[in-house]
Design a protein around this nucleic acid. Structure first.
Lengths: 199, 199, 199, 199
DNA sequence: AATGAATGAGACTTCATTCAT
DNA sequence: CATGAATGAAGTCTCATTCAT
C-alpha cells in the first residue's frame, strides 16, 4: 500500500529535522571541518545518501543549521518584547543571555565557535545578518527610550559585551566568573547605573 | 666549502619568516582549513617540502603563527605599562585596541577569526592562554587602583567589550561605527564615567 | 530502493577479496614498500578511495593479507593431522611443504620475502606467531612420539630446515636442487634415518 | 696549508667507513626503508651531502653495506679452513655460526632481515651470491670427504638449517632454545651422527 | 524515500637527491 | 672535502559527492 502524500511529508519533515539537529550537535562538538557527512549520517542513524536527498551539499546543511540557530536566538528574546519598562527589558536581556550561555553551553559553543569559523562566516552573515541587525536595532531603541546619548554606539557596546562574554565563556568555561559578571552587568545597566549616561 | 654558521642561520631565519608571514596572511584571508600548505608554498614562492623543513606539520605552523600573534599583541600594550595614571591607561588601552583593529584589519581578522576556529581553539588556548590571562590581570589591577568594586568582574566586562567590538567589526567592517564606539567607550571609562562604580 | 542486506554483503565480499588477492600478488611481486595503494587500486581496477573503504590503512591491509597467508598455511597441513603413523606424518610434512614451495612459488615468495621485511615483521609476528608456534608444537609432539631425545630442539631443527630450504629456494629458484633435497630429507626423517637419534 | 694527498685519502677512508658502519647499524635496526639518508647522516654526525659524496645513491650504499657483510661472514669462516678433520670443521662451523648469531645479534638481524627485504634482494644476490655459493661448495666438499652420499643435497640441508635457525632466532630471540639446538646439531653432525648417511 | 558502494580530487607529509657556497 | 637549504615526485589518506538499485 503506497503511503499518502501526507505521510510522505511527515516522514520528510522528521528526517530533515533529525539531520539538522544531529548536524547542529556535531558541528558544535567538533567544528564544521571536523564533522563529516558520514559522521552526521552515522550519528543520525541514516545513510549518507539520504542526507544528500535533503541537502544539496554540506555547505547547504550548515546554512540551514545556522538559520535554525537564528530562529532559536530569536525565540529566546521574543518574550522580552512584551515588557514595557526599558530597564526591566535590559535586565531580562542580560539575564536571559547569560543564563542561556550557562545552560545551553553546547548551543552557544556552536554559535560563537561556528559562526566565526572562516568558511562559515559568509554563510553566517547571510543567514544571521538580519537577525543580528534587528537585535541591535531593538537595543538601540531601548537606549533611545531611556534617553542615553548616542544610543547607537551604546547599543553596539551592549551587544559587544554580551557577545564578548559569550566568547570568553566558551573559551574557558571552567574559570569564567559568569555569575559575578552578570550581577555587575545588571547593576551597570540599571536605572542608577545608566544615570550618568542619560541626558 | 660550506657557508658559515652565520650565513645558514640568516637563510633559515629569512625563509622561516617568509613562511610564517605568508601563512599568517593566508590563514587570515581564507581560514585555517581553507589554506593548504601548497597554497602557502606557492604564495611564498617556495616548495611544499621546504615548509616541512621548517615546520613539523601544518598544526605546528599555525601554532607558531598564533605565537607570533601573541607577541604582537603584547608589544601593542607594552607602551601602556609606563603610564602611571590608571584612567589614562584605560584610555590608551581602548584607543590602542580600537585603532589597531581599524588599521591592522588583517591581523585582527586572523586573531578573532582564527583563534576561535574549532580546531585551532586548543592550540590557541595553549599558546595565547597565558597572554590573555595576564592581560585580564593587568586590567583588574587597574580597576582595583581606581577603586572599582568587584574589579574582577569589571575587568572581564572591559575585556568582553574590546573583544566583542573586535568580533563585530571583523564581522561587518563596512557598517561598523567604530569611531563613535571608541568615543563612547573613552567617555564610559573616564574618571567621570566610572564615578558611579567607585566606592 | 536500496539493495538488500544480502546484495550489499555480496558486493562487499567480492570487492574485499579482489583487493586482498591483488595486494597479495603485488606485495609478493614487488614487496611491501615497492607496492603503493595506487598500484593495487590500478591493478584491481578500482579507485584508491575504495581500498580505504575496506581497509583502514596500508598496514591494515598487509595484516589481513598475512592472516590470509596463515589460513592457507594451516589448510595445507590440515590433512596431515589425520594420519596416525608419525613417520608418515613427517614424510607428508616434508613432501607437502617442498611440493608447495615448488608449485606455489608466488605464495612462498610472499611468505618468506614479505614476513621477514622489517616493517612487516611485527605485524607478521602478531598475525602468524600463533600458527608458527602451534606448528612447532605439533612437530615436537611427533618427535616425542617417535622417541627422539630432546624433541624440542629436534623440532626446531626440522622447522629450520623447511624454512631454510624455502628461503634458499626463493633466493635462487633456478639453480636450487629442490627434488634432491626433498629425497634426502625424506630419507633423513624416515624410520631408518632417525634410528640413531631415538632411545 | 693544503693537506697532502695522503691525508685526504685517510680522511676519505675514515668518513666512508663511518657512513658504512652507521648505515649498517641503522639498516639493521630499522630496516632499509625505515632508515633515511638523513637518519644516517645525523647518527654519523655528518651532512646529508657528504653521504652523497661517497655513495651515488641510497641503493649504492646498501650494496656496499651488504658487501661489508659478506666480508665479515667470510672472515668468520676463514679460520675453519686450516682445520684438517672434516668432522671438526663441521663442528666449528655450527658452533661458529650459532655463537655468532647469539653474540652479534645486530649483525645477523641485518643479514637475515635485510638481505631478504624485497628491494634489497636483487642487490643482495649480486653482492652475496658468490660468497654463499662458495660456502655451499665448501660444505659440499666436506661432506664428500666424509663420504656422505648425495653430498650436494646434504650441503643444502646443512646450510638450510643454519640459515633457518638464524631466521627463527631473529624472529623470536627471547624464546629460542639456541643452546639446545646447538648441542643437538653438533651431535647430529658428529662422526656418530652422520654414520648412517655415509657409505 | 533510502542505501551504501564507489569515485576522484585534493590534502598532508616524507625523503632521495641536487647544488650553491 | 663539507654543508644543509631547497626541490619535487610520490605516497598515504580523507571526504564530499554521485549513482545504481
Amino acid at each position: 500500500m503506497p503511503r499518502t502524500e501526507e505521510q510522505y511529508k511527515e516522514i520528510r519533515e522528521k528526517s530533515r529535522n533529525l539531520i539538522i539537529q544531529t548536524a547542529l550537535k556535531l558541528f558544535a562538538l567538533k567544528g564544521y571541518h571536523g564533522t563529516s557527512i558520514a559522521d552526521i549520517a552515522k550519528e543520525a542513524g541514516i545513510s549518507k545518501g539520504l542526507a544528500y536527498n535533503y541537502f544539496k551539499s554540506k555547505s547547504d546543511l550548515i546554512e540551514v543549521v545556522l538559520e535554525q540557530l537564528g530562529v532559536e536566538v530569536n525565540q529566546m528574546f521574543a518574550g522580552i518584547e512584551s515588557i514595557s519598562d526599558p530597564y526591566e527589558k535590559l535586565r531580562l536581556f542580560i539575564e536571559g543571555t547569560l543564563d542561556s550561555i550557562k545552560n545551553d553551553e553546547e548551543f552557544w559553543s556552536l554559535y560563537f565557535g561556528l559562526s566565526l569559523q572562516h568558511d562559515v562566516l559568509e554563510i553566517s552573515k547571510k543567514v544571521l545578518g538580519n537577525i543580528i541587525e534587528q537585535t541591535f536595532g531593538l537595543i538601540e531603541t531601548l537606549f533611545i527610550e531611556i534617553g542615553v546619548k548616542d544610543a547607537k554606539a551604546e547599543a553596539r557596546i551592549f551587544g559587544a559585551i554580551l557577545d564578548g562574554v559569550g566568547v570568553h565563556y566558551v573559551y574557558d568555561k571552567k574559570n569564567y566568573p559568569l555569575e559575578k559578571v552578570k550581577q555587575q552587568l545588571i547593576k551597570k545597566y540599571s536605572r542608577d547605573g545608566l544615570a550618568s549616561l542619560t541626558i
